[in-house]
Each structure stands twice: as C-alpha cells, then as structure tokens.
Design a protein around this nucleic acid. Structure first.
Length: 464
DNA sequence: AAGTATTACAACCGCCCGTAC
DNA sequence: AGTACGGGCGGTTGTAATACT
C-alpha cells in the first residue's frame, strides 16, 4: 500500500492502452453492448475518469447505465459504478490503513465476517474492495506466520437480544445460506470488543509459543478436524463443545480442572453461541451432524488417519473455505488453542496442501507495513523466539499432516506436555489423544523434510 | 551487480442476489 | 412473472517491490 504508487498518480495501464488516443477507439478487452458499441474493459484511463467524474457531477450517482448513453463512454454501467465507488468518488482515503483502521477491520471482521461492504461503512473513505484486499493479504500473511487471525483479547459480547429464543443446541445453520442468515432481519451483530486492545497493543501475547506449534499443529491435524472447520464462530463453538465431549469421552470427564471453552475462548460469556450460530453458518461440517469424537477427528475416516485431507470428500459437501468470521483459538495468548496454529491455517493445511509442513519461522515483518498488524506479528515473533530458545529441541519443528511426529526425538505427547498449558482445553488430554491416535513419525524440521513429504511448491516458497 | 523468483498490493471481472418497475 | 439495475463478494490478473541466487 505504502509502496504502491497512488492510483491517481500512476495507474496500471496496459501497454495497448497507453497509446490509445481515444477512449472510443480503444477496444482492449471490450465486448459489444446492445448497441453494438464495444464496451471497454480493463483499467480506466484518466480521460475516462474525467468523463465519469463530469457525468456524476452533472447527474449525480446512480443510473450508471445512462453514463454510456450520455457521455459516450465505452464502459458498462457497472464498470462506471465500480470505478466511481472505488476510485473516483470524493473523500476516498487512499494509502495504507492506519493502526486504528486495522484494529477496526479486525474487530469488524470478527463481527461480520466477509461482509466487506458493511465493514466499509464503518471505515469512512475506505471501500469494500480495499478492505477485502487488505484482509486477504493479512490472512495470507498471518497464515504463513502461523498466527491466529484475531488478537487474544478480542472480547465477544453478545447483547441479550441476540440470545433471543434459540438455545445454543437448537440452531441449525446447515439449511440456510450464509447470506440468508447474515443478512436476515433476525441477525444481530454481536457486540464484540477488543478488550484492552489498545492497552495491550504493545504487549500482545497471543503469539503461538513456538515450541508447541508442532504439537499443536499435529493436534490440529489429528484431533484437528476440531479445528479445520472452524470457519465460523458458531461452528467453532460447537466444535469446541464437541471437542469438549471428545475429552470427556476420552477421559471420562470434562471437568478435570479444565476450563470451559467459553472460559478461555470468550472473556465475557457464552452468549455468543447462539448469535454466531445464526450469523455464521459456514461450517462445512456442522457439529450437529453427530460425529462421534473420533469421527470428528477423522472425518470420513480417512482424512486424518493418514494425515491427508481428501478434497473429494468434503466434510459436508463443500470444502470451500470461507474466511472465518471468528477465530476462537486466540483469545488467550497462553491458551492451548492459541499456541496452536490458527484454524485457518489448519484448514489451509488440509485444503491447500495436505502435505504442508508448518514452519515455525514467522514471516518477517514487511517493511512496507506499519501499525497494528506489524505490531502483532512482531510480538508474535518475539514471543515465539523467546519461548523457543530455552529448550531449542523443538526449534524449527515442523510437522506434516501425514506424520504426527516425534520432533527431534520428542514425542508429540511429550511436546504437548511440555506445552503444559494449564488452560488448554485439552491440557494433557491432548497428549493423551495423541498417544491414542497418532502413529509415530520421524522428521524434525522443515529443513530435514523428506522429499516425499516436501511441501507443495507454493508453500515451500512461502515457508522460505 | 544483474537476473530471477516471490510477494504484496491494486484493480478489474464475473457471478449472484435483492429490489424496483 | 419477467426484466433491468444496483450492489456484494470471490476470484483473478497485472505491476511494483522485495528477496534470493
């Protein structure tokens, strides 16, 4: 953003467009409209911009299809609308997002999910597209960094009216499309706040403790379908509840000192459950589908046992990954879930590259970025490296979904125990789970990655 | 230092949906 | 009911910047 030239100063203009002396003459990528006039596609020229601006000044916004008629502009109405909305309209704020804006985006995304336009309404001068692009790059960056999407101190506060009539166990989101629910009249955006976000700005501590990341990623991948489908808050809660049952099933109790999921996932209350259930029906594998704990861990009984996720066997008919509206795994920097990779990352691990190892090396902070995100990433890296140093034996530990491993000779369960996270939802249960369900593997680091287990080229490059 | 590969970002397009007529 | 239009969003592409060899 910062490094990019201002759109108005230096637009990307195809070569075949540069020499164009007339917009009417330019037919790059065009198509015929009803009047057999070639509608131009591709980047707008300054001349076109001027025409459009002039038109809007005279006629106002709207009726975009009339632009072509009135001005002779060889652009379809929609193209005019987008151009105006995203680039030409006044009060557009260009340039990098400020830390405050970044924070707000995170907060809004936690509330709304991928409702870019609605988010843009809260960010004066910003467009939905701009926010979307920002978010997508942020997602990618944080995925690679192994960081959770949301800061730990995100606080989900759901107003009472959001609880309404539904019991947390009653909701059904599998029979509704996301938009139906998101945009439905009954949908209320929960009050989500970043508790002490500003105060903690410089001391965010939600970064995954890196010595644990391998194990936790294995956890993701083993019992990890608990994580994978966490593409929406509701599913997350439900899955957490399922995982709670998992623990109970595996250990006969869910009360052996372990905090409830709500406890460490939400600072405020469990009210969130119902509301988000209405708002985020993206879960590809609704927990209500009565998967047994083991089935949850091994959807389709084949996805995880061999460590590979079969795209041909979507958990619930679709594996399309919706950007999560919430990542419940990161409410507490010390939480077990936070010490694991992000759900999205887990999902990515499954979907994008089943053999993807998870590197502990966080992406370096981009010098082109500044502000909140950088602070978060930097903090994560700092903490990660700090915690990684003392024992070092798990440094650079990587895992593959197909190989729940002993990293550097340390078993996963041991690593989990090392994690020794008192507030882990699984606590030692996690290691027990591993003991029960994970075969030993070898391999210890990304560098030592066997060729056959090498990450996809895409990820390999990203992990560099 | 130069060439190449990768990444980040901006911008556009296409599909879909809701609404108004 | 059908159509036109506006709007939302996911996906894709092109370019500049950066990293790597």
């Amino acid at each position: 953003m910062n490094g990019m030239p201002n759109e108005s100063d230096k637009r990307m203009v195809p070569k075949d467009e540069i020499d164009s002396t007339s917009i009417e003459e330019d037919s790059s990528g065009g198509s015929l409209n009803g009047g057999n006039q070639v509608l131009k596609k591709g980047p707008w020229t300054s001349a076109e911009d001027a025409i459009l601006i002039d038109y809007v000044k005279k006629h106002g916004e709207g009726n975009w299809n009339a632009v072509q008629k009135h001005t002779g502009l060889s652009r379809c109405g929609k193209s005019c609308r987008l151009r105006w909305a995203n680039h030409l309209r006044p009060n557009l704020k260009k340039g990098a997002f400020t830390p405050e804006e970044e924070q707000l985006i995170i907060e809004l995304h936690a509330k709304m999910g991928n409702k870019w336009a609605r988010m843009a309404a809260h960010l004066p001068g910003r467009t939905d597209n701009e926010i979307k692009n920002y978010w997508n790059t942020r997602i990618k960056r944080r995925q690679r960094a192994g960081l959770p999407l949301y800061p730990p101190n995100i606080n989900f506060q759901v107003s009472d009216e959001n609880q309404q009539s539904k019991n947390v166990n009653e909701y059904s989101y599998s029979d509704k499309q996301p938009n139906e629910l998101m945009q439905g009249s009954n949908f209320d955006i929960p009050d989500i706040t970043f508790e002490n976000f500003n105060a903690n700005y410089g001391s965010l501590s939600y970064a995954p403790p890196f010595p644990d990341i391998a194990a936790s990623n294995m956890l993701n991948q083993r019992i990890g379908s608990l994580h994978y489908p966490f593409t929406n808050p509701m599913s997350c809660v439900k899955r957490l509840r399922d995982s709670e049952n998992l623990i109970a099933d595996l250990h006969g109790t869910d009360s052996d000192g372990l905090p409830t999921y709500e406890h460490f996932l939400f600072k405020s209350s469990g009210k969130i459950k119902q509301t988000f259930g209405l708002g985020y029906p993206y879960d590809p594998a609704p927990c209500g589908e009565s998967l047994t704990p083991l089935e949850s861990a091994v959807p389709g009984s084949h996805a995880l046992l061999n460590g590979t996720f079969s795209a041909s066997s979507p958990i619930d008919g679709t594996v399309k990954l919706e950007l999560p509206s919430l990542q419940y795994t990161e409410t507490d920097g010390n939480s077990w879930l936070a010490c694991s990779s992000t759900p999205l990352e887990a999902a990515d691990t499954y979907i994008e590259s089943p053999a993807t190892p998870v590197s502990l090396q966080s992406e370096c902070i981009s010098p082109r970025n500044s502000g909140l995100l950088e602070a978060l990433l930097h903090e994560a890296q700092t903490l990660g490296s700090a915690k990684k140093k003392p024992s070092d034996k798990s440094s650079s530990s990587t895992i593959t979904p197909g190989n729940v491993a002993e990293c550097s000779g340390v078993s996963i369960s041991e690593k989990l125990d090392e994690c020794n996270d008192p507030i882990s939802p699984l606590g030692r249960s996690a290691s027990s789970v591993f003991n029960e369900y994970t075969p030993p593997i070898s391999g210890s680091s990304l560098d030592e990655f066997p060729h056959s287990m090498a990450p996809s080229s895409k990820y390999a490059s990203q992990l560099r």
